[in-house]
């Protein structure tokens, strides 16, 4: 790895705020696990996957992802990505960095890599923390799929890994969107607000039945499709569609970020 990507990665993962976000994300599944254990949720008193956590710790992974994917994870990933360029522009480091003998395209690629790596880290923080808490608080056993069939624990672990990867891909899409917005403004607050507003707007549009014509093309529409991996047989249609939508947004977003970042005047 060249020096620029490693510098950007180090900047992203050494910033105290970004580490605090990861810590909060790690804490969420533990809190959910303790709540389920103490309050005795289960036996059809909770909704959906939370019901099964008490009987099988591995379900804490699925339930935690289902709980964090609609808001916590995308906002965390989006906030960090939105700071990548606008944050540097605001505190003046961007001008210093641009004085280095490095092309702007390579610099942007390094920032993109850092934002996407943070998306991977955030998703796996939730998943691994949930796995640890689930194993500590509850029994781990064969998994009952949504279809009612049961798969052995080993197969269930590989399904859990696939699920984490699908969620990671969706969150990487959010990272690219956040970075794109970050290149459009010099104010980190504006970039953050814009990214969060876009996420919330997409989710509201996704919940209004009358907008069903545009819903398949919203980046947030199929974030919860990862649960299709818990069916027998696995239904790939929605997941595949969702991944293509993420790719489309990422390609358009990255090209916009590149055009803006390489052409704007920063020599003030």
């Amino acid at each position: 790895m060249g020096p620029i990507p490693s510098i950007e990665l180090a900047l992203t993962f050494r910033r105290r705020r970004n580490l605090m976000i990861l810590a909060v994300l790690a804490l969420l599944p533990i809190l959910v696990g303790i709540t389920v254990r103490v309050a005795g949720i289960g036996d059809a008193t909770g909704t959906g996957m939370l019901n099964q956590v008490a009987g099988n710790g591995l379900f804490l992974v699925f339930a935690s992802l289902a709980l964090t994917v609609p808001l916590f994870l995308p906002v965390a990933v989006g906030a960090v990505a939105a700071d990548q360029v606008a944050g540097d522009a605001a505190d003046g480091t961007l001008r210093t960095v641009l004085a280095w003998p490095v092309g702007r395209t390579r610099l942007l690629a390094a920032k993109l890599l850092a934002a996407v790596t943070y998306a991977v880290a955030a998703t796996f923080t939730v998943a691994l923390s949930a796995l640890a808490a689930g194993a500590a608080l509850f029994p781990m056993r064969d998994v009952t799929l949504l279809s009612g069939a049961t798969i052995p624990l080993g197969t269930a672990f590989s399904r859990a890994l696939l699920i984490a990867l699908v969620v990671t891909a969706c969150m990487a899409g959010v990272a690219v969107i956040g970075l794109t917005i970050s290149t459009l403004t010099d104010s980190p607050a504006t970039a953050l607000a814009g990214t969060v507003a876009l996420i919330v707007a997409a989710e509201i549009a996704g919940s209004i039945p009358q907008l069903d014509a545009i819903q398949p093309w919203l980046f947030s529409e199929d974030w919860l499709a990862f649960a299709d991996l818990l069916r027998s047989p696995v239904y790939w249609g929605t997941i595949t569609h969702s991944l293509w939508v993420q790719a489309a947004y990422a390609v358009i977003g990255a090209s916009l970020a590149w055009a803006r970042f390489t052409s704007r005047d920063l020599a003030l």
Binding site: N51, L146, A227, Y235
Partner: peptide, 29 residues
């Protein structure tokens, strides 16, 4: 016949005259 819904599934299994209805949300057969 399985209704594939977000994070949940409702299945109807028929074996000749035998009928099972499976509700994943309530873990109820």
């Amino acid at each position: 016949i399985a209704l594939l819904d977000t994070l949940s599934e409702y299945d109807i299994y028929r074996d000749d005259s035998d009928l099972w209805m499976w509700d994943s949300t309530r873990q109820l057969a």
